[in-house]
Design a protein around this nucleic acid. Structure first.
Lengths: 158, 158
DNA sequence: CAAGAAATGATATATTATAACATATCACCC
DNA sequence: GGGTGATATGTTATAATATATCATTTCTTG
């Protein structure tokens, strides 16, 4: 068993730094501009391992004295999700930083209902089963949403 | 290949009647009241094989001259989803009539992005793969959301 | 039929998201 | 290096989805 969720007391600054470094690389590869606003939003999303709502991001930006409006946040989110740097968690209407942006959007999301954290995995068996189920019914997949709610390992044992 | 989506020109009245008959049975078994409002909402949901938003239901009820407000619709939806008679499609913020209400909520939803129809399946391989993925990471499942967007068989061939 | 429980009505408001147009900033060419 | 078109952000308004709260009605059951 390998817990996907980060350990208590891990060095979260490293998560943030590494995510930003990755994002920079992706943007460069895609010839997309990682502007101040996008970087700011991305870094706010990475402040925790939870999913964050657009309005939480807005509040955080405004708390810093910026006069930001909803469209600004939603635009940054659209940019980031289009590049796969952030994923939208449909069942939470919230956004989550992806730590494997080259994963082709086939991931699955574990959402802990106790601590609120989210973890992503790209499980081949799940993808295969989903693809097979689609094939069985003659369905051509464009996108999949697999969100699993429950208790993370920490929260079942503490 | 067995298409889950109903054939063109199928007798949809039978879908509706059968769904209502099933719903009556479930409510009786659960000792829950299938009131006029709940029946009305349920039957509106079953007017098509698409997912319907709460406000589309509200509009339909109001179009019939009823002076219905949002909470009324949401209450009916809550009742129906709690009993498993209706499922919420998270990625659409919309509601869909379940034709196998004893399925334990482990279903997968195929959503056709062209015709808008939704079909439900309960694929054991997918469930098993998801449960295994959860076990691998020490995660205790409470609920799963598996929504697959793409083209139904009709829409790929026509 | 009375009394409590369950359902619905009614009002207000919270939360999530986008449309439309104005302004600012950037990248590139000359 | 300055003009120009493209890209990004600012600004205002509003749409779409959902819930809290309290009042009233309807149902059930003794």
């Amino acid at each position: 068993m390998t817990d996907l969720f980060p350990k208590k007391g891990h060095d979260h600054d490293r998560c943030i730094d590494s995510a930003i470094a990755q994002a920079e690389k992706v943007c460069e590869a895609e010839n997309a501009r990682f502007t101040d606003m996008r970087r700011k939003v991305f870094s706010l999303i990475w402040q925790s391992h939870k999913a964050v709502t657009a309005y939480e991001l807005l509040d955080a930006l405004q708390a810093e004295g910026q006069r930001v409006q909803p469209p600004t946040v939603y635009r940054a989110l659209e940019f980031l999700t289009d590049l796969g740097l952030v994923h939208r968690i449909e069942s939470l209407n919230a956004y989550f930083g992806c730590d494997q942006p080259d994963c082709d959007h086939l991931g699955q999301y574990f959402i802990c209902t106790r601590c609120g954290r989210v973890a992503e995995t790209v499980d081949e068996d799940v993808s295969i089963a989903v693809r097979k189920a689609a094939k069985n019914v003659g369905f051509k997949i464009q996108a999949t949403t697999v969100e699993i709610k429950g208790l993370c390992h920490d929260c079942t044992t503490h």
